[in-house]
Nucleic acid binder design. Structure first.
Lengths: 348, 348
DNA sequence: TTTAGCACTCACTTGATAAGAGTGCTAACA
DNA sequence: TGTTAGCACTCTTATCAAGTGAGTGCTAAA
């Protein structure tokens, strides 16, 4: 059934008002505040219809009306107007997210922090899934007599390194050889292929000294690759939640913290969300604990390919227009910063 | 004035009971529960004396007694017994903190997470202050036509790297030369000296191509060093706080989150604490917001020299014995993992 | 010095009452 | 037939009074 013009107007007023006031809104207040040329009684009739259709609910008989998840969905899809981010906010965002030092982790952390500041909600971000990231080269560098640094560079421009302590001394020649052999073998393969497809074992050697070297290095190499594959979750602005009326009740606040505390599960939820700007409202979320929350996420790109996510979580009553615009603007900025330019002609 | 044996016994019973129950304890309950051979009336007299001396307080006339900060201090200094960490906990700790991959950040993060799990409090950790860390060598490595990786290795074994995008192409020879010149100039100097004492400008060059290279690299080098000097703060277990009766009141919980939310200030507080195991109770803390909290920190060492900190924050009513033991055991473990062995004979 | 007894205090609970906001229904009106 | 005014009804919230129980402080006796 279609909603009449008037019903839409009333619904929009209720949603907008409730988002800013957090108080159930009654017919009398509505007619006074929004001056829509009809009496409270008429509004009551319309409200009653809207309630039958599932757009409004009633905390108890003598309270005003509150929008349902369905109403928020309608609002987000049809009624909501585009929010223009103030110039100064835009400036702050680009300033903080544009660095010439290419440190993804740092930038993402900043992004999460900034996002929660701007929206007054709890924010989060995950680093890209690296499974399809391809290896570019591997380098072992001498540090001192018994330690070397393992450095792995991927096609997306990500560099990771670890110090490895050896039990026996090594020669520089062996180290160089190993770097070259491994690079030759693994270059262009995805990280997960290297780990799963047993490619690993190919780098063993006949030469005695080399074989000893490989032996100590192998487990370190594997665990470093595994670390690299882990998707990192950053969160910020949790304290903001306690300024929101919905979470004045300590029990509700605890539920909220529970969601976030199970980092592993929460990360999985984020990974499995579709790409692009995605809004899920209340019971649209599959996870029980999140039935009272809304989640907004958007994706950013690294090297135009790898995909990470940035978003907020909060009560279903939130500024969908504002939050959506800000998140989208931020992810665009991040993607811009990390679109690797070079890469046409490789070194070597 | 010295406390009689009996007063000490009563005080100890009150502190211990209050720590586990969080309820003010009355004379009658005390005499029944702890069976100390004297009547409630006698206990009342002693309690009254203890209150005059400042060891106990009174939420209101008809409530039981509650230990003051002074009582906790006495308890921590004299009455508290050494807590023996269960074997299984010890095992979990060493297992999680001993890695052969030397990633300090990761280990510290795990430590904070584990610590909050074991104590049910909020935990935190800061990475070592790197100011006195000395540079060991600098390496520029080619990645592709327009990007190079800058790698800095310090004496403590810390390795950091960033990808730098250049505007113009470079030659491998120039890069090698630059690596060598910079290493030669800066080796053995502390990071803060390099940044502050204007040593930076020494690495300019007469040769045209080199000079262009140096120009783009210089700001990146500086900002990388600055990043390295930043002390990182990790926190975990914030949600634990909400299971503690003291923070059932949403207002109190907010104060607590405020402390932690001002990461910069909080980091400074931690940096300025003395080394070793330090316990500050309630109003012993200089910061107003922390007057209701106790802080326990201990220091860990990297390379036997650089000092980072690990600790918990919670209400003044906490298991000082247990928490202290656990933190100390953990920092010992971390120090053990990061005592760099080699270093006698440098590479080169 | 210790203890029993007793009056007193204060927080907390329960129940009753009143006020306020809002609904739903009915009947009148355009 | 849609709109509106009026009114009874419902439900929450605030307030107040009375009763209860845990605990103290003081006094006097053992």
């Amino acid at each position: 059934m279609d909603l009449s013009e008037r019903k839409l107007k009333i619904l929009q007023a209720i949603v907008a008002d409730f988002i800013s006031s957090a108080e159930p809104i009654g017919s009398r207040t509505l007619s006074k505040k929004y001056d829509m040329g009809i009496s409270p009684a008429t509004i009551r009739n319309e409200m009653s219809d809207l309630e039958d259709m599932g757009y409004l609910t009633h905390p108890h008989t003598s309270a005003g009306r509150v929008p349902s998840d369905k109403a928020y969905r309608l609002y987000v899809n049809n009624l909501m107007q585009k929010y223009e981010i103030p110039e100064e906010d835009k400036q702050i965002i680009s300033e903080k997210l544009t660095t010439n030092v290419m440190e993804l982790e740092r930038t993402i952390k900043h992004a999460a922090s900034l996002l929660s500041d701007l929206t007054n909600l709890a924010s989060f971000a995950i680093t890209p899934n690296q499974e399809s990231n391809k290896l570019k080269h591997i380098n072992f560098l001498p540090v001192d007599k018994y330690s070397v640094v393992l450095m792995i560079v991927t096609e997306s421009g990500r560099v990771i390194n670890t110090t490895i302590k050896l039990k026996t001394a090594y020669t520089e020649e062996n180290l160089n050889l190993l770097s070259r052999v491994m690079t030759y073998n693994y270059k262009g393969k995805t990280l997960s292929d290297i780990l799963t497809l047993d490619i690993i074992k190919t780098f063993e050697s006949d030469i005695e000294a080399m074989s000893r070297l490989v032996e100590t290095i192998k487990p370190n190499f594997i665990s470093t690759l595994e670390n690299m594959l882990d998707v990192e979750l950053y969160m910020d602005g949790l304290a903001n939640i306690f300024s929101i009326p919905e979470y004045n009740d300590i029990e509700k606040a605890k539920v909220f913290l529970d969601i976030i505390n199970q980092r592993k599960q929460f990360t999985d939820v984020l990974i499995n969300r579709e790409n692009g700007v995605i809004i899920t409202i209340g019971n649209e979320n599959k996870e029980d604990l999140m039935r009272d929350c809304s989640l907004i996420t958007a994706t950013y790109h690294v090297n135009g390919k790898l995909v990470g996510k940035l978003g907020v979580i909060g009560p279903t009553r939130m500024r969908y227009d504002e939050v959506t615009s800000i998140i989208e603007y931020m992810t665009d900025n991040i993607s811009e910063t990390f679109k690797v330019t070079g890469g046409d002609k490789d070194y070597e």
